[in-house]
């Protein structure tokens, strides 16, 4: 499996881990695992996710 790059929360100085984050769009909420600081909750959404799956879900929700 491809190793995910290490990302560090600049505030807490700890490594981000894959944790569930709640997203909302057009009055609907859903959860997805993304790199997130286990201490302060800071998230990182890579461009691949934003332009890929997220964009797809956005488009679907715009027609739901």
């Amino acid at each position: 499996m491809e190793e995910k790059p290490t990302l560090i929360c600049d505030k807490c100085k700890v490594e981000l881990v894959e944790l569930e984050v709640e997203f909302s769009y057009l009055n609907r909420s859903f959860r997805h695992k993304v790199p997130r600081c286990p201490e302060c909750g800071q998230v990182h959404i890579p461009e691949k996710l934003a332009g890929g799956r997220m964009s797809e879900v956005e488009k679907n929700l715009e027609e739901k």
Binding site: V21, E22, F23, V43, V57, E58
Partner: peptide, 11 residues
């Protein structure tokens, strides 16, 4: 790099 998304992060 710069990019966007429309969903909101509920944090």
């Amino acid at each position: 790099n710069a990019y966007t998304h429309r969903m909101k992060i509920k944090l």
